[in-house]
Write a protein that binds this DNA or RNA. Structure first.
Lengths: 202, 202
DNA sequence: GAATTCATGTAACTTGTTACATGATTTA
DNA sequence: TAAATCATGTAACAAGTTACATGAATTC
């Protein structure tokens, strides 16, 4: 259910299109929720059917007309009601493809696994740089450009808290992967000394 | 696709039932993948249809017969093939209900939000204790009881790496929430001084 | 001239959740 | 005597992914 309410919450800041929402997801809130284009358009249609949003069409030439969605009073109350009802236990179901593979790492070719750790480190390092910039520049507002706004948004405090978690996660993952690579290289040396073969003949 | 291959990988260690697999997911690999009972049984049936596993029935009295699944040669090669083909980018799609709510925190009743931070801290602290124990006692093998096994499993090194990530994530989340609570309380004081009303009349 | 941005989606499919159903055995 | 454990699932639904479709305007 969270996606629908996240969309509602963003539209609550100001009316916008599905395209705008997709950009916000990709550029500034992706450390706590991701969404595909098809999902956004589908859920917007449902929010509209439920009377939580309305839209007006802004005609354009040479490209599809804009559908600008705005929140309704019903939508506002549904949103705050949802927000104030936290799930009973605050668990976050994790699904990490990367960790599954590491878990079964003995079946992976050592060169491949080393390469994948290196790639992971590279990607996380880049991610971390972006997050650091965002935190420093106070760019962590949904639109991604705080400098355009002359006054600080009242929700800025909360945006900052979530951005901080994104930063801390990325940092923890980076440090973990660096440790993994180091320990794995030592592990391979000890394995080579005890002249053990890799499983499955790899 | 990961769930099917995670199941295959676990069955590869030793033949087991859907019930056994569910216990492993709940007790020892849940920091990188979660699965419901219905999903496990459904995917086991599909793995069987694909010829990746076979099963034999162990009759029981007073409860449903056990269906003990074992991996086939086809299953083994499908598993190692999958393992060695990492996705192009190692991103982990995150979906945190809790963070969505914090992001829109200005619409939440302060007492409620404080309570939720406290609850989050409590849950994460408990989680962290379990993870610390697991790391210290080398219990982070799929079965959850390393002490039963006289020799260390060859995959132990990799299980330890993933368990470490689980520990680091829980630690980062705990520290974040503690910081949030502290900063939120200060924030509320400054808000009270500037005599601002909470949005939506809450 | 090629790639990216803008802007809308639909259809088919896969994956994950929730509710339901059964019922003896063991532990607290 | 109540709750947890053991052991199997099905059905309906919700949420997420992937592939496809269109096409001008703008930037490199």
């Amino acid at each position: 259910m969270s996606l629908k309410y996240a969309l509602l919450g963003l539209i609550n800041y100001q009316p916008m299109t599905g395209y705008d929402l997709k950009n916000i997801f990709d550029s500034s809130v992706n450390y706590f929720w991701t969404a595909s284009t098809s999902q956004i358009y589908r859920d917007l249609a449902e929010l509209e059917r439920n009377g939580f949003v309305t839209f007006h069409i802004e005609p354009q030439k040479g490209r599809p007309d804009k559908k600008i969605y705005a929140i309704t009073e019903t939508g506002k109350s549904a949103f705050t009601e949802w927000l104030n009802q936290f799930p009973l236990n605050p668990i976050v179901p994790i699904r990490s493809d990367f960790l599954v593979r590491v878990f079964f790492g003995s079946h992976i070719r050592p060169e491949e696994l080393k390469f994948q750790f290196q790639k992971f480190i590279k990607v996380k390092r880049e991610e971390l740089v972006l997050m650091e910039q965002a935190l420093r520049a106070h760019k962590n507002c949904p639109s991604g450009n705080a400098e355009k706004e002359s006054i600080e948004h009242p929700d800025h405090f909360f945006w900052h808290l979530t951005a901080k978690m994104g930063y801390l996660s990325a940092k923890a993952e980076l440090e973990w992967a660096q440790m993994c690579l180091e320990e794995y290289e030592n592990y391979l040396k000890t394995q080579a000394n005890s002249s053990q073969l890799y499983p499955d003949g790899l």
